[in-house]
Design a protein around this nucleic acid. Structure first.
Lengths: 198, 198
DNA sequence: GGGGCTTGTAATCATACGATTACATCATCC
DNA sequence: GGATGATGTAATCGTATGATTACAAGCCCC
């Protein structure tokens, strides 16, 4: 037995939540195991279960935290912008910036795909509508602007989640789709891609 | 033992593929079990495994068939349309028409979210790009039109997959988002909703 | 310096699930 | 009419996995 450095539980929870976002994003709720998450966080499997009670509780917290982070990112972009004309592009760029943390977008995608689950579904729905509200009210988007924005976000999630970015340099159609979708933010995607290849 | 009516294997495979699309769509790859699929198809679990070799093979076939169906639907819409002006709306309407079979859209979503998987990922990517090609070439969409169309499709998948449609009549914000997204096709969503409530 | 709280692991359990095997039933051909 | 192949199930196996338990080791306060 080699007990790791002892760390306050609150901090350890944060580490686990970070690791879990990655793992849930990659493997989905069913595919991810508490042991995989534990290894990614550098601790033992039972400790993960003890700190969160259950795998289900864990992903609920992961989803809530993910939504919080997305909203915080948007809030920043809204705050430092005063021209309502360019605000959509600014917030969109902020969202694309989140690809650098693969876990965030992929976790969102998995969450929305688990709408059937009695525990996960409600959390995902509340998170999505909280983001919708923020765009409508804080950002001042119209309903149509918000729909357009969310649609673009879901496409981004799909492109990243499907792993197509790996074919960015070998498939011209993929390149076309990505250039059209990410435009000047495309370098961010490439950066996130090489980062994820570890 | 109560052997069901004996049915040719080819036909039984179709039944299983239909059932599997529903179950995989609802529960995801990890959450779905071969037994659940078997029960949905009205047969025993071992027979599912025998007819497809493995759960992994099964979902691969489900994804391929789902993409085929989407493309066939689009092809129909393209064929009976001669005005390139209204073609995007026509194809979009055709896609929304697919919500009546919940399994199709949800399976697509699960497939794209499993891009990491060494077996499922490639199939999902090929399917997505086949659809992209069809829109670009057969439908004659520009890259930008195609991006817009796919984004809208992914939003639709998300809205249906997250289960938000159940709150259509109780949450004004949800109603706003759905009206903006589906417009005159909204009744189709309601119909699909009540259909899924069984 | 020791009692008690916190942080952590090893060992183990119970179960769910995909897969395999062996067997049953029916149709068809000769 | 019985051999053969196709269609199907019951029983079972091996393993992965979430959870539980028991225990170890540091920290802190008095």
């Amino acid at each position: 037995m080699k007990p790791r450095d002892r760390i306050p539980a609150a901090e350890r929870r944060e580490q686990i939540l970070d690791a879990a976002a990655q793992v849930f994003g990659e493997l989905g709720y069913g595919g991810a195991t508490t042991d995989t998450i534990a290894r990614a966080a550098g601790i033992s499997q039972p400790y993960v279960v003890r700190l969160f009670g259950s795998k289900e509780n864990l992903i609920v917290e992961v989803i809530e935290r993910t939504c919080d982070r997305v909203m915080a990112t948007f809030r920043e972009a809204i705050a430092l912008e005063d021209d309502p004309e360019t605000l959509p592009r600014r917030i969109g760029g902020a969202y694309i910036g989140l690809v650098s943390d693969r876990g965030i977008l992929l976790t969102l995608m998995q969450a929305f795909g688990a709408g059937h689950d009695p525990k996960i579904g409600p959390v995902a729905r509340i998170g999505l509508m909280r983001i919708y509200d923020q765009l409508r009210e804080e950002a001042g988007f119209s309903a149509e602007q918000t729909r357009e924005f969310l649609a673009q976000g879901m496409l981004i999630n799909t492109l990243i989640g499907s792993g197509l970015s790996a074919q960015l340099d070998t498939d011209a159609r993929v390149a076309e789709l990505f250039e059209c979708t990410f435009q000047d933010k495309l370098p961010l995607v490439r950066a996130g891609m090489s980062l994820a290849a570890r």
